[in-house]
C-alpha cells in the first residue's frame, strides 16, 4: 500500500537566543495507508514536536516531509492551513473544544473553514457525532460534558473532515481508565474502517493495541517494531466506523 506519511532526515531545532535545542535529530520513516501507529518515548524525547510537524502545525528545520506523496514542508501559511483543514484530523490531550459552541458546532468548525454549505456541514457533523455515540448530546456545550465525552466530541471533529490521517497527542492522558477505553475503542473502530492513525502515548497498554510502535529518545528513533499479533491487546469485538 502507498505511504501516506514519509519523512526523510527530518530535523527540528528550537533556537532560544544562543541556545539550540535539537528536538528532532534526523528521522526517517514511512507510514502506509491504513496503519495505526503508536509513538512512545520519555518526556522531552520529541514526540509532540514530531506530531506537530506531521500535522503541518510546524515546519521542519531540515529534511523532508511528504504527505500523500506531496512535499508540504515548504508551503505558505495559508496553504498549510488548507492542508490541516482537509487532510489532517487532530485530537488533543486536553480536547480543545470551544466553550461558546455546542458539541455539534464544534464538530462543524473544520467544515466551516472549508467553506462547506450549512446543511451539508450539519449533516456530516451529525453523522460524526452519531458515530462516536453522542447524537443526543449534540446541543450540549463542552462544559456540560464529561472529559470522556468531550474527547469523543473532539474525535468526531477530527473525523468529520474525512482527513487522510488522524493525529492524536496523548488522547487518553487526561481520562480515567473507563473513558480512556471508550476513546481507544473509537480509534480502533476508525482503524478498522481503514483510516491512518498516529497516537502519541505514554501508556504501554494503549500502544499495544496498535500495529506498530515507534520509540523515540533524544530526538532519534531508537526502536520501530510491529506489534506481533500474539502480544496485541484487544477490546473484544470492535465495530467499523
Amino acid at each position: 500500500m502507498a505511504d501516506v506519511i514519509r519523512v526523510e532526515s527530518l530535523k527540528r531545532i528550537y533556537r532560544m537566543g544562543d541556545v539550540e535545542v535539537a528536538a528532532l535529530q534526523g528521522l526517517d520513516f514511512a507510514i502506509p495507508e491504513g496503519q495505526m501507529v503508536a509513538i512512545m518515548g520519555p518526556s522531552g524525547s520529541g514526540k509532540s514536536t514530531l506530531l506537530n510537524l506531521l500535522g503541518c502545525l510546524d515546519r521542519p528545520s531540515a529534511g523532508r516531509y511528504f504527505l500523500g506523496g506531496e512535499e508540504v514542508g515548504r508551503k505558505s501559511d495559508d496553504a498549510l492551513a488548507d492542508v490541516r483543514n482537509r487532510r489532517i484530523g487532530f485530537v488533543f490531550q486536553n480536547y480543545n473544544l470551544l466553550p461558546q459552541l455546542t458539541a455539534l458546532e464544534n464538530v462543524e468548525l473544520p467544515l466551516v473553514y472549508r467553506g462547506l454549505g450549512r446543511t451539508q456541514r450539519r449533516k456530516r457533523a451529525e453523522d460524526a457525532l452519531a458515530a462516536v455515540g453522542l447524537a443526543e448530546r449534540r446541543h450540549h456545550r463542552p462544559l456540560e460534558l464529561s472529559g470522556g465525552q468531550q474527547q469523543r466530541v473532539s474525535v468526531a471533529r477530527a473525523l468529520a473532515g474525512e482527513p487522510d490521517v488522524i493525529l492524536a497527542d496523548e488522547p487518553t492522558g487526561n481520562l480515567d481508565s473507563t473513558s480512556g477505553e471508550e476513546v481507544l475503542r473509537l480509534f480502533l473502530a476508525l482503524h478498522k474502517s481503514g483510516r491512518t492513525i498516529v497516537i502519541v502515548t505514554h501508556d504501554e497498554d494503549v500502544a499495544l493495541h496498535t500495529e506498530r510502535i515507534v520509540r523515540l529518545r533524544d530526538g532519534r528513533v531508537v526502536a520501530d517494531d510491529p506489534v506481533p499479533a500474539s502480544s496485541r491487546h484487544t477490546l473484544g469485538e470492535v465495530q467499523e466506523l
Binding site: 500535522g55 502545525l57 501559511d77 495559508d78 492551513a81 488548507d82 490541516r84 483543514n85 482537509r86 487532530f90 480543545n96 470551544l98 468548525l109 473544520p110 473553514y113 472549508r114 471533529r157 473532515g161
Partner: peptide, 11 residues
Amino acid sequence: GLRKAIGARRG
C-alpha cells in the same frame, strides 16, 4: 490556536 490547527486561514 485551535482554529488555526483545524484549518482557519489568517484571513
